[in-house]
Deep mutational scan, measured.
Amino acid sequence: MQRVNMIMAESPGLITICLLGYLLSAECTVFLDHENANKILNRPKRYNSGKLEEFVQGNLERECMEEKCSFEEAREVFENTERTTEFWKQYVDGDQCESNPCLNGGSCKDDINSYECWCPFGFEGKNCELDVTCNIKNGRCEQFCKNSADNKVVCSCTEGYRLAENQKSCEPAVPFPCGRVSVSQTSKLTRAETVFPDVDYVNSTEAETILDNITQSTQSFNDFTRVVGGEDAKPGQFPWQVVLNGKVDAFCGGSIVNEKWIVTAAHCVETGVKITVVAGEHNIEETEHTEQKRNVIRIIPHHNYNAAINKYNHDIALLELDEPLVLNSYVTPICIADKEYTNIFLKFGSGYVSGWGRVFHKGRSALVLQYLRVPLVDRATCLRSTKFTIYNNMFCAGFHEGGRDSCQGDSGGPHVTEVEGTSFLTGIISWGEECAMKGKYGIYTKVSRYVNWIKEKTKLT
């Protein structure tokens, strides 16, 4: 034993070699072989497995989906700052455009905790909710729209109204504003409101030439003092309507412009014939205590009207009353817009006519005020429907199939267009061939041609 100890002390290297040989010859039971080890760690190889990531292109799944990435790591994937920024906006807080917040056709661009709407022409605001041009839906104005110097929408209202708090709607500024039905039992019968379409306001006024200088022999019209197929109006439903009495009662109609003036057809009036105007009328054979009678003290036909040349060209006249009318729910003026808007309103496509005229061709006159909704007829169809001249200051309205029309005794009465609950004068009943005849239409004086003249002559002093 002493000898062994001496050998170990003198030859430590020998001992180490012996131990190493023993270990190498022993069977290893701690580690699995290569094949079995792979069965336990069965993990798919990654895209760049075996390579240094710093030297390969980034992978979106590896960089940002398996674990949260930084902007720089995302930049490695896209290799483009702009594309990385677009991805980053949604990656950080989701897609803010998912709810489609942009209105009126706006395009949404996502941002971090926010979004941006790219608005089409005519709109602005956070969600493109603000109209900035009158060309689109009248700028959301209830009545009139004008573009300011910086191309912003400025709404306005006709006389007797003021802008509401929203700067879009119009509200009454006087007790009985024009064009409004205020009798409670008839307010439910107000005709369907007309909503502004998209309009090209630059070209809204037709490029028409008034044929002022045409000389033409007097034409022989049949029954051209021209509501057939209409309905009984309720008291106060058309408070701007008046009836004219002269040699015979209810020979023509008219509309209240203001307390002192009536507008009617020029062919209705004769110099030297006494005319009485009755406002607030409903049943011409009954006294309903809503009527107001006034005498006409002055007749002003349009300066281009000449019955000797043509009885229905420039067929418009103004009547001055001896005493002002007292405005109330049964006696209310009709609204008159400017030339541009009167023309736009007419193009809405349908209007209402009213009167006490004959209820059928050569038949009896109506006792109760009649009204009828009539569609506008395109000019080409209008011209083809008659052998008589249709001037540019006239328009056609009615039904091709016949059966409904204005008729004798309705002449001078109103053709009105309702705009968001307020009625505007767009025409004056003038003439036609018979009444409600198939293929024939009622012919009306186009008020847009005469609004400046009306307003100039009827100013209240």
Rank of each mutant, 00 (worst) to 15 (best):
A265V: 03
C170Q: 00
R294K: 03
N258S: 05
L130W: 07
D410N: 08
I428D: 00
D315P: 01
S148K: 10
N245Q: 05
V377C: 03
S255G: 04
I275L: 14
K45F: 04
Q408F: 14
I297N: 03
Y201W: 11
G236M: 05
P324F: 03
A366S: 04
I428P: 01
G236A: 06
N452S: 13
L383A: 15
F221M: 09
I256E: 00
I136E: 14
C28Q: 03
A279P: 00
P239C: 00
M65E: 13
D111C: 11
S182T: 13
N36Q: 11
E165Y: 09
P12Q: 09
G125E: 02
G280C: 01
K387V: 06
G160P: 00
S182I: 08
S385I: 13
K438I: 05
V174Q: 08
I275D: 01
G21Y: 12
E456H: 06
N306G: 03
N48I: 05
F176I: 09
C141L: 00
P375L: 08
I297M: 07
S423G: 11
F196T: 12
D232S: 11
Y161V: 01
E142R: 04
I210P: 10
H314S: 04
H303I: 06
R3E: 05
L189F: 14
E53F: 06
W118H: 13
D322F: 00
E116S: 13
D110T: 15
L369H: 09
D150Q: 10
V248H: 08
C407T: 05
G349C: 03
F399G: 09
F71H: 05
E285R: 09
L319N: 00
M437C: 07
Q370I: 03
Q167H: 11
A380I: 10
G413N: 07
T271M: 10
S148W: 07
A308P: 06
R384Y: 07
D95R: 14
D131I: 06
V263C: 02
P101L: 05
T342M: 03
Y341V: 07
V227D: 13
P44H: 08
K260G: 03
V92N: 07
G439K: 10
D338G: 11
Y115L: 03
W88S: 15
A380P: 12
R226H: 12
N295R: 03
R294A: 02
A207V: 07
S406N: 15
T290K: 05
T342Y: 02
K234S: 13
A149N: 12
T225I: 10
Y330L: 05
A173V: 12
Y47E: 08
G421A: 07
V174P: 01
W240N: 00
E79P: 15
V228L: 07
V359H: 06
S329W: 05
D410Y: 07
P172C: 03
I316A: 01
L372Y: 13
R75N: 14
N283K: 06
E54H: 09
N59Q: 14
R404Q: 05
N343C: 03
I284L: 11
Y115N: 03
T381H: 12
I40V: 12
R46E: 14
R83W: 05
C97L: 02
I17A: 04
L325K: 00
E320D: 01
E208D: 14
F176W: 05
F388D: 07
C396Q: 02
G125T: 02
V278K: 05
K457F: 07
V227G: 10
G160R: 01
H314R: 02
V227A: 13
E340W: 14
E434A: 14
T276D: 06
K45P: 15
E259K: 07
L367R: 14
P239G: 02
A233P: 09
H302R: 02
C407A: 04
S11G: 15
Q216G: 06
L369S: 13
H267P: 00
G439R: 10
Y450S: 02
Y115K: 04
K126P: 15
P197F: 10
K51E: 11
G94L: 08
L318F: 02
I7R: 15
C252H: 00
V331D: 01
N147W: 08
G355P: 05
S365W: 09
F388Y: 15
T290H: 10
V353W: 03
A265M: 02
V326T: 07
D322Q: 03
S350M: 07
F221K: 11
C435A: 04
N113W: 04
F251T: 06
N166F: 02
R46Q: 14
T264Q: 01
T186M: 11
D249L: 02
K247Y: 04
I214A: 08
P120A: 12
R43I: 10
E54Y: 06
C157G: 00
E208P: 13
S156G: 07
V77T: 13
V174K: 08
R379Q: 14
Y47R: 05
V228G: 05
E76Y: 06
Q408C: 13
N138P: 08
Y305G: 02
I297L: 08
F388H: 14
A307N: 08
K440P: 07
V77H: 14
V368A: 11
V419Y: 14
F196M: 08
A380C: 07
P172S: 09
T386I: 11
I112Y: 11
V248S: 04
R373P: 11
A366D: 14
C18T: 06
F399E: 15
T381S: 05
E288R: 06
E53R: 06
A164F: 03
R294Y: 01
S182Q: 06
E66K: 06
D198H: 12
E142H: 06
N127K: 14
T332E: 03
R46D: 07
F238L: 05
Q241Y: 15
G125C: 01
K109G: 04
A266E: 00
G105A: 13
A149W: 06
H34C: 05
F348S: 13
M437Q: 14
Q237C: 04
Y312W: 12
D378L: 04
D249V: 02
L425W: 00
N127C: 04
N42Y: 08
V248K: 08
P44F: 04
D378P: 13
E79H: 15
T276Y: 05
L130P: 07
S423H: 12
I300R: 03
K339H: 09
V263L: 11
A308Y: 12
A308N: 13
I7F: 10
Y391V: 06
M6G: 14
V183G: 08
N151V: 08
N245G: 03
Q96F: 10
K455N: 09
N80F: 03
F251S: 08
F238Y: 03
S49P: 14
Y115W: 08
C252S: 01
C108P: 02
Q370M: 05
V242L: 02
N135L: 12
R180G: 03
I309L: 12
T458M: 04
R379C: 06
G58N: 12
N213Q: 09
T215K: 06
E433T: 08
S217L: 06
F424T: 01
K274W: 00
N245W: 02
G432M: 05
E323W: 05
T190F: 08
E53Y: 06
